[in-house]
Amino acid sequence: MKMILLLLMCFCTVAMAQTPGSSPKLVVCEGKAQGTYFIVKYLSSDTASLQTRIDSVFAVIDQSLSLYKPGSLINQFNATGEVKMDAHMRTVIDKAIYTSKATNGIFDITVKPLVYLWGFGVTKPSFKGVPPTDSIKKALSYVGYRYLKIKGDHLTTTKKGVQIDCNGIAQGYTVDVLGRFLDQLGIHDYLVDVGGELCAKGVNQMGNPWRIGIERPAPGDTTYEPIQAMVTLQDKGIATSGNYRRFFDQGRTRFAHTIDPVSGIALHSRIISVTVIAKDCFTADAFDNPLILMGVEKGLKFIAQHPAYGLEALYIYKAADGSIKEAYSPGFKDFLML
């Protein structure tokens, strides 16, 4: 799963809402799913737990998209090169291909052979460190979203051995599915967090937009500094990709789990993280990996040149002197609590 730099800045208990004349309470459901944690917070006058129903949502999506679940649809495809998709898988595959085209292949779910080669997959390689050049070249020969073909509800590949990994987008999709689930129950004030990928709607128990803190690593990358920035989130999604939770160091270079599907090389730039805000978490999650691979200058230029995607981003990176710097798109400032 992707590393996350976000902390929820609201109470983790059931508390009375502060809106005069109302009775809704803050209800919290939390647990483990998709290899990480989840927290769902919402305001409701009915405090009966939705835990079981939320767990069921995760179970259905995992049966479609989890690489950890034997027999899942994604594992069926990776084993045979074809699968009949359900609605969840079809939606995610469509979004993945759309994002691949939008980023000229910098986002590509067929990156799975490279992810495993670099040691960031479900199973670990027999060696540790930077893979041999010939191994990277071989893995790259199976990477390319254009090898994927959709006909009706069937997904196939035109090249034997092509496999997919949706971990770079599935959590954001799951967040939005849970949000729609709450909408259908008539719940309109909520915050959904799956491993740090979030969507927010309405207000918190104080009647204010949901507040989220963004933290940054200390210069030594072993501890965390205090909250670096606070953002307000209302009817938006937010996702973060970074380089200091899943990585390995070789020499003086840090290689993170985000793999460039064009070069086949793991992220090893000075960028620590990029936090992306979009109209929904699905979109934010889809673009955070390509934006971190683009780098600060190209990433911010991409956002400016493609306003239709509705993206705003905050980069945290190390300058040449080792100091930690920040850069963000103009619209991101509107979410910052200064």
Rank of each mutant, 00 (worst) to 15 (best):
K2W: 04
D176C: 13
Y190F: 14
A308H: 14
S72M: 11
V203D: 07
Q305C: 05
V130E: 11
V27S: 12
F127Q: 11
Q34M: 15
D260M: 08
G105K: 05
T19N: 08
A256E: 12
E82W: 08
L185D: 03
L291Y: 00
K137Y: 00
C12E: 07
V122L: 14
R180D: 14
K112P: 02
T275A: 04
D153L: 05
Y42G: 04
Q228T: 09
V262Q: 13
L314D: 11
G105A: 15
T52P: 00
K236C: 15
L67E: 11
S329M: 06
V175T: 02
G179S: 07
T36F: 01
M89F: 13
R254Q: 10
Y317M: 05
P20T: 09
I292E: 00
S23A: 11
V203Q: 09
I214T: 02
A170G: 03
A139F: 06
L65F: 00
K124E: 11
M230C: 09
D280F: 01
A284C: 03
V231P: 01
G186M: 09
I164H: 01
P261R: 00
D235E: 13
K69E: 14
F247Y: 15
S126E: 13
G295R: 03
T240D: 07
Y37F: 08
C12A: 03
K333R: 10
V14A: 08
Y98S: 13
R211E: 10
T275W: 10
F77P: 02
V115P: 03
A87L: 04
D165V: 09
G35S: 06
Y145A: 04
I272T: 08
V162G: 01
F38E: 08
E197H: 04
L314Y: 04
K95I: 10
Q305P: 00
D94Y: 02
G299Q: 10
A33V: 02
G129M: 06
W118D: 12
I54A: 03
D134F: 08
A304I: 03
R245T: 15
K149L: 14
P125C: 10
K236Y: 14
G310N: 05
V143R: 04
A79S: 13
K160C: 13
K95N: 09
I303Y: 00
K301S: 14
G31N: 02
G71D: 06
S45M: 02
P113D: 06
I187R: 01
N243R: 10
Q305N: 15
D235Q: 09
V130I: 12
T47C: 12
P125G: 09
Y328L: 13
Q63G: 15
V262K: 13
I61W: 00
G172L: 07
L185Q: 04
F248C: 06
S329K: 07
L114T: 01
T223W: 09
G168Q: 06
S135E: 12
L178I: 15
G35K: 04
D189H: 15
K101M: 08
T253W: 05
V111C: 14
G121S: 11
G35F: 09
A33H: 06
K101C: 15
S49N: 07
S49P: 03
K160G: 07
T222A: 08
Y98C: 11
T52A: 15
Q76G: 04
